[in-house]
């Protein structure tokens, strides 16, 4: 991958992550916030992949994006929905 394309992809992913992270704070519904945090994790794993760290990207994608999102959703169920 040539340098400017790499930089553009990294910066684009980073900006997307920041916007999503702020959105997770602002949105009203807890379930939307959880899904957005999952999206931030997935973007982070993409960023790791762009930075030549596939080992970390695999871990982030499975733990950060999949497992912790589901754990948060189950936790939301346990505290009784939108509170």
């Amino acid at each position: 991958m040539n340098m400017s394309l790499f930089a553009a992809a990294s910066i684009g992913t980073g900006v997307m992550m920041i916007v999503a992270a702020v959105a997770a704070l602002i949105v009203k519904k807890l379930i939307s916030a959880i899904i957005i945090v999952g999206f931030v994790s997935l973007s982070a794993s993409l960023l790791f992949l762009l930075m030549d760290a596939p080992d970390v990207a695999i871990t982030e994608a499975s733990i950060g994006a999949a497992i912790s999102t589901v754990i948060f959703l189950w936790g939301r169920g346990k505290i009784g929905g939108e509170q």
Partner: peptide
């Protein structure tokens, strides 16, 4: 190849 015990275990668990 990229990976190892921890990422692989997490993938199996998912």
């Amino acid at each position: 190849s990229p990976g190892g015990g921890f990422p692989g275990g997490a993938v199996v668990a998912s």
